[in-house]
Amino acid sequence: MTQKDDDVFNQEEERYLKSYYQKLDQQWGVDPSTSEAQLAQFRERLNQERTKNASWRFSWKFFMTALLAAFSMGLLSSRWIMVPELVATRGIEPTSHSEVSANSPPKIVSITTLEPKAYTEHLIDLTKDAGLEVTVITSGQNRQISVKPFLKGDARQDKAREFLGIDADTIGVVTVILSQPSP
């Protein structure tokens, strides 16, 4: 672009135009800079906005804190409520059975015998006074026997271990499945 702005009007005409626009701006309240009063008004408005935002943020934080506190209280109180129930469902020995079970995978021993009933009775005899609990589930001639808890280094349980053919260091729950040979 090569034209100059002042090509259209001469100097005097430009002066008229400038004067007209200055008057128009005055009439319309157009000012060349922001006055202190306007700035102060805006600062005030911004402060109100900041206060509003801060109170909103505070209420949001308060809500989150309250929620977390309630959750934590729930967790703590549930421990107190639940613990006696857990103790009640546990067993025979002062050692926690569930802990042993949780730390050791279940072992399954499958045995085929002509006399499942006699085998079961003998196993029950061996577990007596050995700190073991035996649960027997019978289905026809088949039986599923759960023996627990085998504890590490408990000499009283060695006979039962030997009878079941499991290692001396086996701990936790041992499930024995007894079945008769097919005819």
Binding site: M1, Q3, K4, D5, D7, V8, F9, L17
Partner: peptide, 8 residues
């Protein structure tokens, strides 16, 4: 420039 021409 064009605006001034239009204003003329």
């Amino acid at each position: 420039y064009e605006s001034k021409k239009k204003l003329a």
